[in-house]
Design a protein around this nucleic acid. Structure first.
Lengths: 217, 217
DNA sequence: AGCTTCATTGGGCAAATTTCCCGATCTGCA
DNA sequence: TGCAGATCGGGAAATTTGCCCAATGAAGCT
């Protein structure tokens, strides 16, 4: 019997790790009014499963191989603009959260949250509300206080270009040659970029670039 | 009542994501003879929990922030060389599998495996056998047939660990603190790693680490 | 036009880091 | 027993960074 028809909440789980998926399937089904009606391990299957079951809530890990989870969100919303999708992610970068909501998600909970937070968030989005876990809210709140948009918006064109090349693995000499600048200028940009983005390490810079879609690894 | 005293298997779960941990806690406890006696969310707590409970099997995700899971494995084995530790990882890179077994793990299962594989592996290591999931076995088999010249093979364990933390974005000071080394030593390793892998830039190092499954981006 | 702003380009210089070199331990192993 | 290799760190010169500065040019506003 469908949970939807009994006043409960029917759920589609999307995560590429079977054990993990199976894991929180049990956590969720421990709630009497929850019913996991389907599972999917990638974006394409998520869309198919949604069409087949039209669940009340989709709980989705967006970091999956192949097509992006964001793509899956957009596809599902394109089909049913009333779909409730709760993103369940490892990370809580402001850019990722915004991208998820921008794609049509109704909620965002990190895997670092307590199970109770996930359960509560599912109930919220099922009611049509928006929800996010505490840590996500904190990150977004910080973001809104400090006028920092997408981390890239605070960078000029040249800075972005240099960040891109740095992330690509180019040395400062190569970048200077590529852009016809002095090594010193590239060095100054490197410093400025780190200052503006609040990163300490080059590795953090690479991660930032990848997150912002500047570099693909 | 302890599962150990009733002929069952007592388990310590180590994973830094509460929901995920809670998730497979339920998967495991669904087995009548399994009993999760403790949980931990980092390497240090894992060691403490092991001392306190002396479980039959430790199921551990080795990709955790701060001190490495490999370190935790070594610590636990140093205390009780009979400890059975089953690594439960996102990745299945040959180098990482070897490092885990080298550190004293009894088994290696990826999160991409079916729950049944995890359960079976736990039973195996509890009996004192070694175990690994099918995908891990396939990777290792390939490796033994065609010795993959993974860039990691030329690196020692310490070097790999330091590379991992560098790629994660940690500063040398943080790494030194995490591993209880002098900053100078970390510096020397950083230099050595770049020399051995032929990389010039930290960004290239990050890419290398990601390619080898050492870093999750 | 006159003014302010800001992106872009680089110099300077003290402080920090990197680069190589070296030796000391501590292993495992033949 | 003795060798090879991994691990750990010191030393010193070379290089880079961190942070200051100034000059230019292009908008943009009034």
């Amino acid at each position: 019997m469908s949970a939807a028809r009994t006043g409960g909440i029917s759920i589609l789980l999307v995560d590429d790790h079977p054990v993990v998926r199976q894991g929180y399937r049990r956590v969720l089904e421990h709630q009497d009014d929850f019913s996991v009606v389907a599972e999917a391990d990638n974006a394409a299957n998520a869309y198919r499963a949604f069409k087949a079951h039209e669940p009340d809530v989709v709980v989705m890990d967006i970091s999956m191989p192949g097509a992006s989870g964001l793509e899956a969100i957009r596809n599902i919303r394109a089909r049913n603009s009333d779909a409730r999708i709760l993103v369940f992610s490892m990370h809580s970068e402001a850019a990722q959260v915004k991208a998820a909501f921008g794609a049509g998600a109704s909620g965002f909970v990190t895997k670092g949250s307590e199970p109770a937070e996930l359960i509560q968030a599912i109930r919220s989005v099922a009611r049509g509300e928006h929800a996010m876990s505490d840590d996500v809210a904190r990150v977004l709140a910080m973001e809104s206080l400090v006028p920092t948009k997408s981390a890239l918006d605070q960078l000029g064109e040249r800075e972005i270009e240099i960040l891109r090349q740095l992330a690509a693995g180019n040395t400062k000499e190569q970048i200077a040659a590529n852009l016809n600048l002095s090594t010193k200028t590239v060095q100054n940009y490197h410093y400025l970029i780190k200052a503006k983005t609040g990163t300490r390490t080059d590795a953090q810079l690479v991660r930032l670039a990848v997150e912002c879609g500047l570099a693909n690894l």
